[in-house]
């Protein structure tokens, strides 16, 4: 008897047996789970996820051999990460620079390309925030490198000090408060709730910005002379009040 014929007949007979159909459905699902998630994680993990085996795709002109130093988040940044998650910044911003030359060029600085994202950089991320939509620019390399620790006078906890971040803290605050005042035509929403009534950043906002400055801290790639972008001085039109909000108490 033709083996294919008998297999086919066996499959046809399945329609009388709902238990076997269910078992088949579950089996196929399990195979997929093992192949796509469990095998890469548990078996291939050491080689593919932890190591440097993520191969370069054709479009890269050079092999970027940059040393990688993954820094864990400090407590403040972890809180900031939570703000980033619950405010849904990740619906507009990705955190992954793909292995595509024009993309690395776009997020680069001073003629130097930004290195593409590497697997180990995500080691401390849960949930991962690689993202799926770029209504705004990628944020994988918006931060800088960690150069030390200091005690935050407000909370009394130890926090990272950063250098060579793309933007200064002040720019980030001003941007979160009113993106269009810095970048006309931006569609990023204002976040008035991250600021108090005097326009000063709240603790949540500080946490968030600390987190942003951490992004991409595993690789030191910006030129040594790089200066973070500062917010422009607030323009004061003659005859108007200095600020619409009352001045903060001393």
């Amino acid at each position: 008897m033709n083996p294919f014929r008998s297999i086919w007949n066996w499959i046809l007979r399945l329609e009388y047996d709902w238990v076997k159909v269910s078992a088949g459905i579950t089996l196929f699902w399990l195979i997929g789970l093992i192949g796509l998630v469990l095998y890469p994680y548990f078996v291939g993990g050491k080689i593919t996820l932890g190591g440097h085996k993520t191969k370069m795709v054709t479009l890269l002109p050079t092999n970027q051999k940059v040393p990688l130093k993954v820094v864990p988040y400090d407590a403040q940044e972890l809180r900031g990460r939570q703000v980033y998650v619950s405010e849904g910044c990740w619906y507009c911003h990705t955190q992954t620079i793909r292995t595509i030359a024009v993309e690395m060029a776009r997020y680069g600085a001073g003629g130097i390309w930004a290195p593409y994202s590497r697997a180990q950089e995500y080691e401390y991320d849960w949930p991962q925030l690689m993202g799926e939509h770029r209504h705004g620019p990628d944020l994988a390399r918006v931060g800088g490198i960690v150069v030390g620790w200091k005690r935050d006078p407000r909370t009394g906890e130890m926090v990272h000090i950063y250098a060579k971040t793309k933007y200064s803290n002040g720019w980030q605050y001003a941007h979160l408060r009113d993106p269009r005042s810095l970048v006309p035509g931006s569609i990023m929403p204002q976040f008035p709730n991250l600021f108090d009534q005097y326009g000063r950043p709240t603790q949540r906002c500080r946490d968030l910005v600390a987190y942003l400055q951490h992004l991409g801290s595993a690789i030191d790639w910006r030129p040594q002379t790089y200066k973070s972008i500062q917010p422009p001085p607030i323009p004061i039109a003659p005859g108007t009040a200095v600020s619409s909000s009352p001045s903060p108490p001393k």
């Binding site: 998630v37 180990q120 995500y122 080691e123 401390y124 849960w126």
Partner: peptide, 11 residues
Amino acid sequence: HFNGIADALAN
């Protein structure tokens, strides 16, 4: 939970 890249795969 997973973390990092494995979390992205699971996601």
